[in-house]
């Protein structure tokens, strides 16, 4: 039977530190007790980016974004929202100035001006399931590069794209690839440095955790 509802629980480090693992467990337990496990699924996704308001639970396709969910409100989300279709009002983000409740992620000021590019799959796919990444067009560019393009074409297109490194230097990626191609040697190594030395910088880690393929 196809699933009719999914509860996406943020598994980013911030949300895990504020107990999202327990929230996930309570949601799963509640859904099992209601005998809805074949219709409703709870899964852990990568970071939603709104760590200060975590743990985040997003209900889809209803498109309801819950913030600061604890064990008690997780039980309430199952009893009210999942079973009866009633939104748990007090866990909807409240805009501090207007005190308006904003149930949709896209209407929250924090998200309103964001267009997620590198992080587009974070908070959407199950990072531990490669098929979900492929379903979101994952590896399609790589497959084209390997089967349809020459190395020179790849370098040229990356150069023209304007793609740059995401560190402070912002080095043009195409130039880097061109230099590595021209350098001598039969065997070349790719070293992936995903360390984040800056305190409070979570961008690479968010990708590795939430969209690792």
């Amino acid at each position: 039977m196809p699933l009719r509802m999914e509860l996406l629980v943020c598994g980013g480090t911030g949300c895990q530190a504020s107990n999202s693992n327990k929230v996930l467990e309570v949601l799963r337990q509640g859904i099992k007790e209601a005998n809805l496990q074949d219709e409703v699924r709870v899964l852990m996704t990568g970071c939603f980016g709104f760590c200060e308001k975590g743990p985040i639970v997003k209900v889809m396709p209803d498109n309801i974004f819950y913030v600061e969910v604890d064990e008690e409100s997780a039980r309430k989300i199952v009893a009210e929202h999942v079973i009866k279709g009633r939104i748990v009002e007090e866990k909807i983000y409240k805009e501090p100035k207007t005190e308006e409740r904003l149930p949709e992620q896209s209407s929250i000021p924090f998200y309103k001006k964001q267009i997620r590019i590198a992080l587009r799959n974070c908070g959407k796919i199950d990072p531990e399931n490669i098929n979900e990444y492929i379903a979101a067009d994952g590896y399609m560019a790589l497959a084209r590069v390997l089967t349809e393009m020459t190395p020179e074409e790849v370098i040229d297109i990356v150069k023209r794209s304007g793609l740059r490194g995401r560190g402070g230097g912002g080095f043009p990626t195409g130039l880097k690839w061109e230099a590595t191609r021209k350098s001598k040697g039969d065997v070349k190594y790719v070293i992936c440095n995903a360390d984040e030395g800056d305190p409070g910088a979570f961008m690479d880690r968010s990708i590795l955790e939430g969209d690792p393929h």
Binding site: P2, L3, R4, M5, E6, L8, M60, P61, D62, N63, E104, Q105, S106, K124, I125, N131, E132, I134, A135, A136, D137, M140
Partner: peptide, 14 residues
């Protein structure tokens, strides 16, 4: 990709 496409359908409901 096509086999798993509808796995994401609920999550692209916006």
């Amino acid at each position: 990709r096509d086999k798993y496409k509808d796995v994401l359908q609920n999550r692209e409901a916006e």
